[in-house]
Design a protein around this nucleic acid. Sequence first.
DNA 1: ATGACGATTTACT
DNA 2: GTAAATCGTCATA
Length: 215
Amino acid sequence: MAQRARRAFYRTDPVSLARRLLGCTLVRQESGGVRLSAMIVETEAYLGVEDAAAHSYKGRRSARNESMYGPPGTAYVYFTYGMHHCFNIVAGAPGEPVAALIRAAEPLEGVKVMLERRSLGRARRSRAPGPLPALRASDLCSGPAKLCEAFGLDRAFDGLDLAGPGSPVWIEPAAALGPEQIATSRRIGVAYAGAWARRRLRFLIRANPHVSVPA
DNA sequence: ATGACGATTTACT
DNA sequence: GTAAATCGTCATA
């Protein structure tokens, strides 16, 4: 059984962290005893004040993104599109607003609970009258908001220190993947960011079926 | 005070 | 491929 990642794991540039997170396990231990885990298969790097796609572009700082300015290993969970949450991990040096977005993962433990949460959320949002097609394993965490829904992550988790000894959410490191196992692409959903939208700052485990969008 | 806009997901043509 | 859902946040006034 792997150990919880310590502070030093996160204290690196966001591209390195985004790559290093691939293959690692995201774990949530709930107070009720439920344990959820999934292997991270897709990430994106957000490079801070220079990066037109980052929430911290030009040093923007507000109650919403304050966690980006926290120490490495801090969770940055934000709410978007009026209904979705996304989960990031702060990288870099303390005070440097850079992060890696966790975009997709392969469910390992607690699949039943993830399925319940995803089904409920989906039914609540759906306007269609009839029954919806069944969810597959690859529908549970194959996108940043799906992953948050499956793991039950919301703004209450914003600012959480993942390196803290008692944190209910943490990362278990894995052996680094070789370059031949990692695919790269443009980041998703940032077309407004001009030249920064074209940078290859998205990282995926090659040929993994649990990614949000195939490479 | 107001209006435009999302680091998305889902269903439908 | 296109479009709707839905609301907190931020820029403008």
